[in-house]
Every structure is written in structure tokens, then in C-alpha cells.
Computed example of a mutant assay.
Amino acid sequence: MQNLKAHDGDAETEKVSSTQASEIDDWANFKDDDIMQQQFAIQAEEAEKIPFVGDKEPLSSLANEYKSGSSILLEKIKVLSEQYAAIRRTRGDGNCFFRSFMFAYLEHVMESQDQGEIDRIKANVEQCRMTLRNLGYAEFTFEDFFALFLEQLDCVIQGSETSISLDELVQRSRDQSISDYVVMFFRFVTSGEIRKRSEFFEPFILGLTSASVEQFCKSAVEPMGEESDHVHITALSDALGVPIRVVYLDRSSCDNGSVSVNHHDFHPVSNDLPSAKKGGAEAIDPFITLLYRPGHYDILYPK
């Protein structure tokens, strides 16, 4: 009986060892790509809990987010609070730059009711349409996106049957069928501008990737969910003639020991901006301000 029990024990040990070896093999086959995909899936699931465009919040809500975090970030948020009153968050789904720009621009037009700006942007949109045609894009691939953006633009102009309120603009920006189409409009506009001025953008693209301009546009600009950087912002600003300020909130410290918040103004190359002096001697301050934290953009509201 003792020998039988010993044999059973050996068999059980062998079974456990076999199971462990199998699990180790399974883990070995679970490659880095699989881990990354799982991580992206978790991030996407978390992002879906946040609306495409959030409510306007006091800037103090940003400080609450970092209460137990970096002291440098808390100091920088204090500096920010001297100039900015509020923040509007956007979903971190890779489209946050375009989504932030979309809402901030339409909200600006709604508040200003500047007919000159409306006429100017519509003329630039038509130029962007012609750019895509000249580049060989089939019109059916982009026309619906252009039409929906112009429809949203007309809706924020007050005094007509189609006019909407700010609350309605927020709701439309949270409607995926509308919001994603407008994001795609901006992606096509950005791609068209980069391709049209490929010689200008090529060195910047080569600094980011080994892809050609065409490959970059196909893989990093036009698809939904692809994150944006300075190339995208420069191209969109130039194409639509809209200046954009990006404020950077990160853990970088200053050489002199003081705390400051850096920003960069993207001024369009065109000189048809309202109030801009001819010859580009003086550019107007951007009326769209975005807050950049590594990998994400939100909207900032000046005091």
C-alpha cells in the first residue's frame, strides 16, 4: 500500500509539474503585442466611461486630480489658475485633439457670432475640398464629413430655425454619429494640407517615423483613434487659418528653480486672419486654447 501511495504521489506531482509547465508555455507565447493589445483594450474601456466632450469645470477640479501626485504639477496648476478659469475634458480615445478643437471652435463662433469669421472659414473649407480633389481623393470618400461640419457651423449661427443652444451643442458633440463625422472632417483637412505641402512637412514626419508623407497620412492622420502631435496641429491650423495655443502641463522643471507653464502658439501661414497685420508683422492671439498632458488634450478657458 505504501508503494501504491508513493506512486500516486509521484503521479500527482508529475501532473502539477505538467500543468505549471503548460502555463509557463502559454505565458511565453503571450507576446508583447498581446500585452499591449490587452492594455489598449483596458484603456479603451475606461475611456468609454467619459463622454466625448465633458461639462465645463472650474480649474480647481484639475488640482483635485493631482492632490496626492506630483508637487511640480500642483504648482503648475496654481500658475495656470492665474490665467485660466475652467477646463472642459474630452475622451482620451486618440481623437481628443480633433474633438477638443471641434468643440472649442464651434463654441467660439456661437459666442462671437462673427460673420466675417464664418465667411472666412467657409471659404477655407472650400479650398480644403479643392485640395482633396486635386490630390485625387474621390469626392464620395469625404463629402459627407464636409457637409456635416458645415451643417454644425450653420447651427451655431443664431437667428434661424436651425439655430441651437450651447447645451444642444454639447449634446451633439456627445452624439457619436455627429461627433465622429466632424472629427473625420478635420482628419481629411489635415491630411490634405500635409500632402499638399509634403516638402515642408516631410522633415518633421521623418523626425517622428520612417514613413513617407503618404504613409504617414494613411496610417497616422486619417484613421480614427490615431493620436495627434505638432504635425497635425500645424497642418490643421494652416489649412483652416485658425491660430491655436497649446499649454503644456508636465513634470519638467525650470533651470532657475521657479515654476512656469510653457505654451506654444500655432499661427497659420495664411495672412487673411481677422485683425492680422499684412506681411505677418503681428499675429493675433489664438482664440482656441488646449491643455496638453502627455498623450491627451482638453480645452482651457481664459479668465
Results as ranks from 00 to 15, higher is better:
245 R>I: 01
245 R>C: 06
245 R>M: 08
246 V>I: 15
246 V>T: 14
246 V>H: 14
247 V>R: 10
247 V>I: 13
247 V>D: 03
247 V>Y: 05
248 Y>H: 09
248 Y>L: 03
248 Y>S: 03
248 Y>R: 07
248 Y>P: 00
248 Y>G: 03
249 L>E: 02
249 L>P: 04
249 L>M: 08
250 D>Q: 05
250 D>L: 06
250 D>E: 05
252 S>L: 10
253 S>I: 11
253 S>N: 07
253 S>A: 12
253 S>M: 08
253 S>W: 05
253 S>D: 03
253 S>V: 14
254 C>N: 11
254 C>G: 02
255 D>S: 08
256 N>A: 07
256 N>Q: 07
257 G>T: 00
257 G>E: 02
258 S>V: 05
259 V>M: 01
260 S>A: 06
260 S>R: 14
260 S>K: 14
260 S>L: 07
261 V>S: 09
261 V>I: 02
261 V>H: 13
262 N>Q: 06
263 H>L: 03
263 H>S: 13
264 H>I: 01
265 D>M: 05
265 D>R: 10
265 D>F: 05
265 D>C: 12
266 F>W: 12
267 H>A: 04
267 H>P: 00
267 H>V: 07
268 P>M: 13
268 P>Y: 11
269 V>D: 12
270 S>G: 12
271 N>M: 11
272 D>Q: 04
272 D>G: 03
272 D>C: 04
272 D>M: 05
273 L>G: 12
274 P>V: 00
274 P>T: 02
274 P>Y: 08
274 P>C: 05
275 S>Y: 10
275 S>A: 08
276 A>T: 08
276 A>M: 14
276 A>Q: 15
277 K>Y: 11
277 K>A: 04
277 K>W: 01
279 G>P: 01
279 G>W: 02
279 G>C: 07
279 G>L: 05
